[in-house]
Amino acid sequence: MADNVTHHYISSFFLVGVPGLQDFHCWIGIPVCLLFAFTLLENNVIIITVKLEPSLHQPMYFFLCMLAMNDMALASSTAPQMLAIFWLGAHRFDFNICLAQMYFIHTFCIIESALLVAMAFDRYVAICIPLHYATILTTPTVIKMGLAGMTRAIFTVLPCPLLIKRLPYYTKYVIHHAYCEHMAVVKLASANTLINRAYGISVALSVMVLDLGLIATSYIKILQAVFRLPSQNARSKALGTCAAHVCTILVSYTPALFSFLTHRIGRKVPPSVHIIFASLYLLVPPTVNPLVYGVKTKQIRDQVIGLFFPNRMISQK
Rank of each mutant, 00 (worst) to 15 (best):
P159A: 05
F104M: 15
F86N: 03
S77T: 15
T78K: 03
C109Q: 13
W27R: 00
N196A: 07
Q58I: 03
L15V: 11
Y124E: 08
R197Q: 09
M66P: 00
F308L: 12
Q316M: 09
C160L: 15
L83P: 05
Q22N: 01
H91C: 13
L116V: 00
T138Y: 05
I220Y: 03
L52I: 13
R312D: 08
G89A: 04
L67K: 13
M183G: 04
I136N: 07
V5W: 10
G266T: 12
K187L: 11
L212W: 08
L261K: 04
N44P: 10
V32L: 02
C33V: 06
V125W: 01
A225V: 00
N289D: 13
G17T: 03
A198I: 07
S272M: 04
I105T: 13
A73L: 14
V251R: 01
Q224T: 06
I136C: 06
P168Q: 10
A153F: 01
L131N: 05
F93Q: 15
S55L: 09
L137P: 09
W87F: 05
D94H: 13
K298Y: 10
A225K: 04
F155V: 14
D71I: 09
A256E: 07
F104S: 12
P80Q: 03
K221P: 03
R166Q: 06
T241C: 10
L257A: 06
C128W: 08
T248C: 15
V207S: 04
Q232T: 07
I48N: 10
A100D: 11
A73Y: 08
E53C: 11
T287K: 09
F227G: 00
